[in-house]
């Protein structure tokens, strides 16, 4: 006996219960990126600072959170930490886990962005007398950010899908609510087809947004001639 009901797919797609799960997925992703960027920036700055302790801490942080599965991190935060008397509600657990994990990836992206900005940019800013804070905010950060957008976009895409892991600790996002619908009606393919459609729509929308961001931040370099690369200095003959 095989049966598949396309109309049920449509019904699940417009299911209000599932739609609310979509909002939770969007919320987790947005908060994960925002929190991850702030924390990731801090980790990257520690890593780039001359201070050995901060540098070591940042390296250890990235090593740990990139080296362990997000699933374990979430489960430990939700079910392990209460053993030590540290308890959060389930959404907070998911956010803490996602942000801690995302920050490790974004820290590396932020760092590579800053390393790609020519040191001559900071030197020119200092030579003009600009304080370090202004040099960072107005000169190096905007240029580094432009370089960060493509890898950042990838990372947001991954995070969007990784929020489905939060279903394991019972956060009612798309995946969890699909499971619940499936267990109620046993229309496995129909429910997951609707969930899959939502993930595809969300990742496609993000692709569009990313392209617009790249265009916006790339506007100053769109017309750049390829010859801004420095050439070897030439000793010129006398012109007198």
């Amino acid at each position: 006996m095989s049966h598949f009901s396309p109309s049920a797919c449509v019904d699940y797609f417009f299911n209000y219960f599932l739609m609310k799960g979509v909002l939770v997925t969007i919320g987790l992703t947005a908060a994960g990126v925002a929190g991850g960027l702030v924390l990731g920036m801090a980790i990257a700055l520690m890593r780039m600072s001359g201070n050995a302790v901060l540098h070591g801490f940042a390296r250890a942080y990235v090593w740990f959170f990139r080296g362990t599965p997000l699933l374990i991190q979430l489960v430990v935060i939700f079910t392990g930490l209460p053993q030590l008397g540290i308890k959060f509600d389930v959404i907070t657990c998911a956010l803490v886990g996602l942000i801690l994990n995302e920050a490790a990836y974004l820290a590396e992206i932020v760092r590579s962005g800053f390393m790609a900005v020519s040191p001559g940019q900071s030197e020119a800013a200092w030579a003009l007398g600009l304080p370090k804070s202004v040099t960072f905010r107005r000169v190096t950060l905007p240029q580094a950010f432009r370089l960060m957008i493509p890898p950042l976009g990838n990372s947001v895409n991954s995070l969007l899908k990784a929020t489905s892991l939060a279903s394991v600790i019972s956060v009612e996002e798309i995946m969890r609510r699909s499971d619940m619908l499936m267990q109620e009606h046993f229309q496995i393919l129909e429910v997951y087809a609707a969930a899959t459609a939502y993930y595809l729509i969300l990742t496609s929308l993000w692709d569009l947004a990313q392209r617009r961001l790249e265009k916006h931040f790339g506007r100053s370099t769109a017309a750049r001639a390829p010859r801004t690369l420095a050439r070897a200095p030439v000793i010129l003959e006398a012109r007198a």
Binding site: S118, G120, Q121, E123, V139, P142, Q143, R146, T221, R224
Partner: peptide, 9 residues
Amino acid sequence: FQNFNLFPH
């Protein structure tokens, strides 16, 4: 500077 170092953005 030799490479101008204007702020490209």
